[in-house]
Simulated assay, not measured.
Amino acid sequence: MQKLNKEVVRKKGIYLLPNLFTTAGLFSGFYAVIASMNGFFELASIAIFVAMLWDGLDGRVARMTNTQSDFGAEYDSMSDMVSFGVAPALLAYNWGLFELGKIGWLAAFIFCAGAALRLARFNTQVGVEDKKYFQGLASPGAAAVIAGSVWLGSENGIKGDEISWLVALLTSLLGLLMVSNFRYYSFKDVNWRGKVNFLTILLMVGVFVLISIEPAFILCLIFYLYALSGPIVTIHSIRRLKRSVSMAGKSDEKDNGPSA
């Protein structure tokens, strides 16, 4: 009986390492909220990117150390909602949407609601959807577009209220992309444990050096291209599917044509 009780207590415990990374991501997202409320928009943007780093580590650490749990999955979703839903929405609102009044906070709410719906849909499709692609823009990617835009604008002296309508359009569009059916490459099929050649390592070093030169511009460019990749990949896939169906139909017509 004592051994059984000890096993039950052990199962009810919480794994420290992956949840520590999740907590770090949650802290970064919360800090981004506080920083944006106090007008430190550049720091808030950087904090969102830091939250992305922690978010990318917690799941991989859990899988590598075999410490996955239902609690960790739920905790990660709650952390993502703060870091990639609430934080970027408030950052966009405080930086460039405040002057628009109701339209401004509605645009921020569309982003926040889109992130919540995206996370809920992802949680219900775990183990069902194609792991190679995301359905809809992932909330960290959408948050990175907002954070990168604000960071780049702040560095170049651009005030959000000067381009408030553009910020509202971007924020609303990102919210809609998160709940869209566009397919985005997930990078989950990359074998991070596998061996690579020396040239790949040099390329990775080059990428880090390039980002360090102009981090705001490079990160903003990368995530804008990623946000645009979904519609491009999906439209290309649909056209290729239509072309293959058309070719199959023509071949069937030739096979079933009139015989001499």
Rank of each mutant, 00 (worst) to 15 (best):
R240F: 07
A143N: 03
S79G: 15
L117G: 14
M81D: 05
L117I: 14
T124F: 06
A32R: 12
S45C: 13
V82Y: 01
T65K: 15
N19H: 02
N66R: 14
L16N: 02
S164N: 12
A260D: 14
Q68L: 04
E99R: 06
I103Y: 09
S36A: 09
S79C: 15
G85M: 05
A144R: 02
L169D: 04
L170E: 12
L225I: 13
L170G: 05
I213K: 10
K12I: 01
A248Q: 06
T67Q: 15
A113N: 02
G175F: 07
K6N: 08
I213N: 06
L174M: 10
I201T: 14
T200D: 08
F30N: 04
E74S: 10
G96P: 13
S36Y: 08
I14C: 05
L199P: 03
S172F: 10
K254A: 10
F40D: 15
E129L: 02
C112F: 11
D58W: 03
A142I: 02
G206S: 11
S244R: 09
L100W: 02
K3L: 13
E253H: 10
K195Q: 13
P258M: 00
A116W: 01
P18Q: 01
E7I: 15
D55N: 11
N94M: 13
C220R: 03
A32D: 08
L43Q: 13
P215L: 05
G59N: 07
G136D: 01
G39R: 09
F49G: 03
G101N: 09
P258G: 01
L170F: 11
F208T: 15
V128R: 14
T124N: 07
S237K: 09
V190M: 12
S251M: 09
W151N: 07
D252E: 15
V82D: 03
D80R: 03
L106R: 08
V179M: 04
R60M: 08
G230F: 01
I46W: 06
K11I: 09
L20Y: 02
A32V: 12
T200H: 13
I48T: 00
W95R: 11
L228E: 06
A51N: 04
G157V: 07
L4D: 02
N191D: 15
A120F: 04
